Simulated scan of single mutants.
Amino acid sequence: MTHPDWIHVQGLRLWAHVGVLELERAQGQWFELEFWLAGDLAEAARSDRLAASFDYALAITALQCQARQVCCLTIEHYSELVLDCLETLYGLIPLRLDLAKCQAPVPGFGGRVAVRRQRRWREAGLPC
């Protein structure tokens, strides 16, 4: 089944205690999350009913709460927790996320490191 529509949330900044270094887990650091929720949004577009769409405010609030409690080693594991949270809210829909560590503690490196994860995205025929 193909879902041509999705909700796309960008720029969600989250403070979490994630990192291989003990200092990263102890002090915490900023992450930036971008995620997509795929589904048929035609009914919401026609009816203007929030119940026919994905209430993204629920996800933002839940992910902010989750971030305050997270303590793990890898961004990969953190991304798994984010996907689990989104599934709890919206069910088994196609999901995609980009989760970036805003300042990786690598000497001489000022960029960002991110993971892209997805569930049921390709199976739904959505673009990579």
Results as ranks from 00 to 15, higher is better:
Ala62His: 00
Trp15Asp: 11
Leu50Pro: 05
Ala38Phe: 07
Cys85Ala: 13
Gly110Ile: 06
Leu12Lys: 10
Leu99Ile: 09
Gly125Pro: 03
Val82Thr: 07
Gly91Asn: 11
His3Trp: 13
Arg25Val: 01
Trp36Gly: 02
Leu21Gly: 03
Gly108Tyr: 01
Trp121Thr: 04
Trp6Gly: 03
Asp40Phe: 07
Gly28Asp: 13
Cys65Asp: 14
Gln69Asp: 06
Arg117Thr: 00
Leu92Phe: 05
Asp55His: 06
Arg96Thr: 04
Ala59Asp: 02
Ala38Met: 12
Thr74Tyr: 06
Arg49Trp: 14
Arg96Met: 09
Glu123Pro: 03
Cys128Glu: 15
Gln10Ala: 15
Ile7Tyr: 03
Arg116Thr: 15
Leu58Ile: 08
His17Gly: 01
Thr2Gln: 12
Gly110Pro: 12
Ile93Tyr: 05
Gln64Ala: 12
Ala16Arg: 04
Ala67Trp: 01
Arg68Ile: 00
Arg120Ala: 06
Gly91Val: 12
Cys71Ser: 01
Gln69Thr: 08
Trp121Arg: 07
Glu87Arg: 09
Leu14Trp: 09
Glu76Gly: 15
Trp15Thr: 12
Gln27His: 12
Ala44Glu: 06
Val9Thr: 12
Leu23Ala: 15
Glu76His: 06
Glu34Gly: 02
Phe54Val: 13
His8Asp: 05
Glu80Pro: 00
Gly91Met: 02
Pro107Leu: 01
Leu97Thr: 05
His3Ser: 08
Leu86Met: 10
Leu50Phe: 09
Ile7Gly: 10
Gly108Gln: 02
Cys71Gly: 03
Leu89Val: 10
Pro4Leu: 01
Arg49Asn: 09
Val113Cys: 13
Leu97Phe: 01
Ala67Gln: 00
His8Gln: 04
Leu126Asp: 04
Gln69Cys: 11
Gln118Arg: 08
Arg116Cys: 10
His8Pro: 00
Cys102Leu: 15
Trp36Thr: 02
Cys71Val: 08
Ser47Met: 07
Phe109Tyr: 14
Val18Gly: 07
Gln118Met: 11
Ala124Cys: 09
Glu123Gly: 06
Ile75Ser: 06
Leu37Met: 12
Leu89Ser: 07
Thr61His: 08
Leu73Met: 11
Asp84Ser: 11
Thr2Ser: 13
Gly28Met: 12
Leu73Phe: 15
Leu50Ile: 14
Gly39Ile: 01
Thr2Cys: 05
Gly19His: 03
Leu58Gly: 04
His3Ile: 09
Val70Pro: 01
Tyr78Ala: 10
Thr88Leu: 09
